[in-house]
């Protein structure tokens, strides 16, 4: 039986050979053992670069809109969470359905590469990764290493809502059981319990560290504005000076700007070079949207109208 990477390669090859797409965006081996990187494959010969495993953290749906003006179609490899981005991009008219082929791969969770890397002898070569349910075994030429999911998965994966892609034209691998995590909002609930000044102190400490590298914004699949408010010169809404006030303005504005559209792919949180727990901001909004409007995570289904982005004549708010 072919492993998932081989099945992916096969499907990609077929799509490219049959000219259904001109480009396949997937994961390839990165420059560290425990790291994969986006690859862009435009010929059937190139598909051997495609791989799959627990080091495929990036949300590749982000790249789809780069190819809106390409003559042919684009295929993209997505995990469950990334698939929500595809739905959201379609709903925002950022990409065209007929130009996109979604290759969905059910995902049992992604590992934090730096944590894993720290355990493995430098310079080792990866042989294989085995999923044991509660843990992964990473087999290398310097021996086998075991990583429990509880301790080594990305935070977002510990409370994964959609291990199976919610939109997919081609599905690779077996569907995984969906769990209902009661602790999904645990971190946010802990924060909610704090007094106002404690909450403020918590976020002040986080935002003070911000370098304003804008990686959180640039990696975000729902940040699709042509000119971002933070890059505007006239007027300059937020100064380039990094201080608590400006940094807070940046993060709060961003959180609200993606409220109701954020698909909780957790990429902002993963890429932050200063480990600011940005996902907590978004998850708080998800929790509130759920509590107030019974609204599911954006992108979970196609055509979901965000309670903050839709209009209904029956809205009880008088000013509407």
């Amino acid at each position: 039986m072919m492993n998932l990477a081989q099945q992916l390669q096969e499907q990609a090859k077929k799509l490219l050979e049959e000219k259904k797409v001109d480009l396949v965006i997937g994961f390839g081996q990165g420059t560290e053992l425990a790291r994969n990187t986006p690859v862009f494959i435009d010929s059937p010969e190139g598909v051997s670069a495609l791989t799959w495993g627990p080091f495929c953290a990036n949300n590749l749906a982000k790249y789809l809109s780069d190819y809106n003006n390409a003559p042919g179609g684009t295929a993209v490899v997505v995990k469950g969470c990334d698939a929500r981005s595809v739905n959201r991009l379609l709903d925002d008219n950022q990409i065209l359905r007929e130009k996109v082929v979604v290759i969905g791969v059910p995902c049992p969770g992604q590992l934090e590469w730096q944590k894993v890397s720290a355990e493995i002898k430098p310079g080792s070569t990866l042989k294989e990764v085995v999923d044991n349910g509660d843990s992964y075994t990473v087999k290398t030429d310097s021996g086998d290493y075991s990583f429990s999911k509880k301790d080594y998965l990305l935070h977002r994966c510990l409370v994964c809502e959609n291990p199976n892609p919610v939109i997919s034209d081609i599905t690779i691998g077996k569907e995984l059981p969906v769990k209902n995590y009661e602790e999904r909002f645990a971190e946010v609930q802990d924060l909610e319990k704090l007094a106002v000044n404690e909450k403020s102190a918590y976020w002040d400490k986080q935002f003070t560290r911000c370098l304003r590298c804008y990686a959180c914004r640039n990696v975000c699949s729902v940040c699709t504005c042509e000119v971002c408010v933070f890059d505007q010169m006239m007027p300059m809404w937020v100064s380039k000076r990094t201080n608590l006030s400006e940094n807070t303005a940046f993060h709060i504005t961003r959180a609200f700007h993606v409220a109701g559209r954020c698909v909780d792919c957790g990429e902002c949180d993963r890429v932050c070079p200063m480990d600011i727990p940005l996902r907590k901001l978004n998850v708080k909004i998800h929790k509130d949207l759920g509590d107030l409007f019974n609204s599911p995570t954006p992108g979970t289904e196609p055509g979901l109208i965000s309670p903050l982005g839709g209009f209904s004549p029956g809205d009880p708010e008088e000013f509407m």
Binding site: F40, L211, A215, K240
Partner: peptide
């Protein structure tokens, strides 16, 4: 193709010295 145009590499770089003035 994969670069997301963020500033991480330059901000964490010990030799990057470029600056803005405002």
């Amino acid at each position: 193709k994969k670069c997301i145009s963020c500033g991480i590499c330059t901000y964490v770089c010990p030799t990057c010295h470029c600056f803005d003035i405002f």
